[in-house]
């Protein structure tokens, strides 16, 4: 890939990220209520103490100066104190982030594991019963509200069958000394098979709930691109050469057919971020999404501000990576 083009695309991210920070800042600026009063709550303080706090928080500055202060602080990861936790916002977010990353990765893996084989089968056996079932399933997958699907899964697998836990990330006995802070990986690295099983059992239902819409979309994309590839001349040629069908499918067709799937998967990974809020709430998953929802009810604005900015920056970067991935995988497209 052309390095100059890559740098150009990277530079184009700057105004977007700047714009995103302006919007996040303005959202906070127009929020009704005085941050100092919210932070103090019921505590009685003198007028001077209140003024000192206002000054410390930079609230006595004019808006444009506050924005530049916000921006320069944001660059160093300083978003102030979480009103509720009395701890730096960045620390609170960092403590909840691994759970969200682990859940998103599990959902992504679930979506890929389900969608690619089913999409390929649906294309190979086009118009068969299997194809029709996959079409209907994917239609249900995108129409099902995540929070409701999660509740149904809990009802069936956790309450009725008692196969899986109702909520949470791990049982009390499964605490593992952290290395990566991803429970599934840490438990394996520490050789704690029992903790691994426990963490796996906890993550299955939320990962399926979060990954279902993505799996449905990827299944349709894989099916469509596989159908396109199967109609290509080089596949007909491979068939004419007398190659085995499985060999044609895996070695010749699948490699090209997966280009759109991988690209869409990368784009959809960003949308998992939004779904996290709902799924984490349903399953009591101790991640960032649930933290944000809880923060809204206690009006913990610095945390909401930092989290929204974090989500947006991650989303922009993921979409940028998806763009690059598409170009790398598909030499016909140039940036």
């Amino acid at each position: 890939m052309n390095v100059g083009k890559l740098i150009e695309r990277l530079l184009q991210l700057i105004p977007v990220l700047l714009g995103v920070s302006v919007i996040v800042f303005v959202m906070m600026l127009v929020t009704p209520g005085d941050p100092v009063e919210i932070m103090l709550g019921d505590q009685h303080v003198t007028e001077e103490q209140e003024q000192a706090l206002r000054h410390d928080m930079g609230l006595d500055l004019p808006p444009h100066e506050r924005f530049f202060k916000f921006l320069s602080n944001a660059m160093t990861g300083d978003f102030g104190l979480s009103y509720y936790h009395r701890q730096p916002v960045t620390e609170v977010i960092a403590s909840r982030l691994p759970a969200t990353i682990e859940l998103s990765l599990a959902a992504l893996i679930f979506a890929l594991l389900v969608s690619i084989p089913l999409g390929v089968l649906a294309a190979v056996r086009k118009n068969s019963i299997l194809d029709r079932i996959s079409t209907v399933t994917s239609l249900f997958g995108v129409s099902m509200p995540g929070f409701w699907f999660g509740i149904l899964l809990i009802l069936f697998f956790a309450v009725n069958l008692r196969w899986l836990p109702v909520s949470g990330r791990a049982g009390f006995s499964s605490e593992v000394e952290p290395i990566t802070h991803l429970l599934l990986i840490d438990s394996l690295l520490r050789g704690r098979v029992d903790a691994f099983w426990d963490a796996l059992k906890h993550i299955i239902l939320p990962a399926i709930t979060l990954g279902l819409p993505m799996a449905s979309i990827l299944m349709r994309v894989t099916r469509a691109s596989m159908l396109d590839v199967l109609n290509c001349d080089y596949i007909t040629f491979a068939e004419a050469k007398g190659l085995r069908k499985s060999q044609i499918l895996i070695k010749h067709a699948l490699r090209n057919a997966l280009i759109p799937t991988v690209t869409v998967a990368a784009l959809q990974t960003g949308s998992l971020l939004g779904g996290n809020m709902v799924v984490e709430t349903v399953f009591g998953w101790p991640g960032l999404g649930r933290l944000v929802v809880e923060s809204i009810f206690v009006r913990n604005y610095p945390l909401i501000q930092a989290a929204v900015l974090f989500y947006a920056v991650t989303y922009v970067m993921l979409n940028f990576l998806a763009d690059i991935l598409y170009t790398v995988l598909n030499p016909k497209v140039r940036l």
Binding site: P15, V16, G19, I23, S271, L273, G274, I296, V308, Y315
Partner: peptide, 24 residues
């Protein structure tokens, strides 16, 4: 187009939630 690029920088649900957190 720049405005659209910026708005697309937010995951949808998070953008809506952030606005509702502010406005009630």
């Amino acid at each position: 187009s720049r405005l659209v690029d910026i708005l697309l920088g937010f995951p949808y649900l998070i953008f809506a939630i952030a606005l509702i957190a502010m406005t009630g």
